[in-house]
């Protein structure tokens, strides 16, 4: 169990974290999600002990480690840019934690062999990091962090520097790995799709504060604020509030509670169609509907349609003015 309680951190007069409290379930994969500069890395580094908070406490497995050095915390940390030991081979990199702990040679060798196998780098063990691809380097970094059997695995945008295909592949691989190893994991990302796909639970940060905590479904279906709603997927504004474009119902004839709008543009997205419309008061509305539905309506620019949300827009509690402006 990782508990962060009331943690604040300032850099100069910039408040990077403002009384953040997060509690992570053991064995789960939690994603720290938020826009750039929201304090995700800072929070992760504080949990690892690479940064000391100005206020608040960090406990790992019930023990207050706020002022414990990173080397005694038993955390594995994976950096966005790998932080590979450039003068060591892949094997020496993975073995590093065991070497400095003076593990018996045979035992260490067996652990390293097993991990190289898990991350699929057995054939690369005598290479140097600069002879590896980005994805391979990151798998090496992961093996290195896992070698010391950390109680907690912390990943700071581990796939951020990789191209999309490799990223997707590693993502799936990480999830499988987590299901096998079950080490409590916190993953930092600013990619909501990645967070949704990987995590059991999400923590959304914004401006150094926790906006919401919950499972992927919970956050998507019941966002606590406009910010969370906008951050987790596309939204469109209706006169009654924010909705997801695919939830809007478009019809050719007037209906109760429906807003009249004129189609401005039709975008074909494969099996779905996005209709960009303008309502009478000049505000823009975007709807996304299955292709068959769009074809049935014979949607085309200039056409007048009637748009309504099937249920009350979320979030149920209207946000402050400030939140709306921020986004």
């Amino acid at each position: 169990m990782i508990s962060v309680t009331g943690v604040s951190k300032r850099y100069g007069d910039f408040q990077a974290l403002d009384e953040v409290s997060v509690h992570v379930t053991p064995g789960a994969l939690t994603a720290l999600l938020g826009p750039s500069g929201s304090g995700k890395s800072t929070l992760l580094r504080i949990i690892a002990g690479l940064e000391v908070p100005d206020a608040g406490t960090v406990t790992l497995a019930g023990e207050d480690v706020t002022h414990v050095s990173p080397r005694h915390r038993g955390v594995g940390f994976v950096f966005q840019h790998y932080a590979a030991f450039t003068h060591m081979t892949v094997r020496q990199n993975v073995a590093f934690g065991l070497t400095v702990r003076k593990e018996p040679r045979e035992k260490a060798a067996a652990t390293v062999d097993r991990l190289l196998d898990v991350v699929g780098l057995t054939g690369f063990q005598h290479r140097y990091p600069h002879q590896l691809s980005g994805g391979q380097r990151q798998r090496m970094a992961l093996a290195r962090a896992l070698a010391v059997e950390p109680s907690v695995l912390l990943l700071d945008e581990p796939f951020g520097a990789l191209d999309r295909n490799v990223r997707n592949e590693l993502r799936a691989w990480l999830r499988r790995l987590h299901d096998e190893v079950h080490v409590t994991t916190i993953l930092v990302t600013h990619d909501q799709e990645e967070a949704m796909e990987l995590a059991d639970s999400l923590v959304v940060l914004n401006h150094g504060r926790v906006e919401q905590v919950g499972g992927p479904r919970e956050l998507y279906d019941a966002p606590a604020s406009d910010f969370v709603m906008r951050f987790l997927g596309p939204v469109t504004e209706t006169p009654r509030g924010l909705v997801r474009p695919h939830e809007l119902v478009v019809s050719a004839v007037p209906e109760p509670d429906a807003t009249e709008a004129q189609v401005a543009r039709i975008v074909h997205l494969g099996f779905e169609v996005r209709a960009e419309m303008e309502s009478g008061d000049g505000s823009r509305i975007t709807a996304q509907l299955p292709r068959a539905e769009a074809d049935a309506l014979e949607l085309e620019p200039g056409q007048i349609v009637y748009v309504r949300a099937p249920h009350a827009p979320r979030p149920a509690e209207p946000d402050t003015e400030e939140d709306l402006v921020r986004v």
Binding site: L50, P70, R71, T86, F96, G97, A145
Partner: peptide
């Protein structure tokens, strides 16, 4: 070389002295 390699070493359990001899000095 930056500080990340040294930070990685410390999370892996290396002391300051070990980090200097095994990571910083070779770099």
């Amino acid at each position: 070389i930056g500080t990340e390699q040294e930070q990685a070493a410390s999370t892996l359990g290396a002391s300051g002295w070990q980090t200097f001899w095994r990571v910083t000095l070779p770099a």
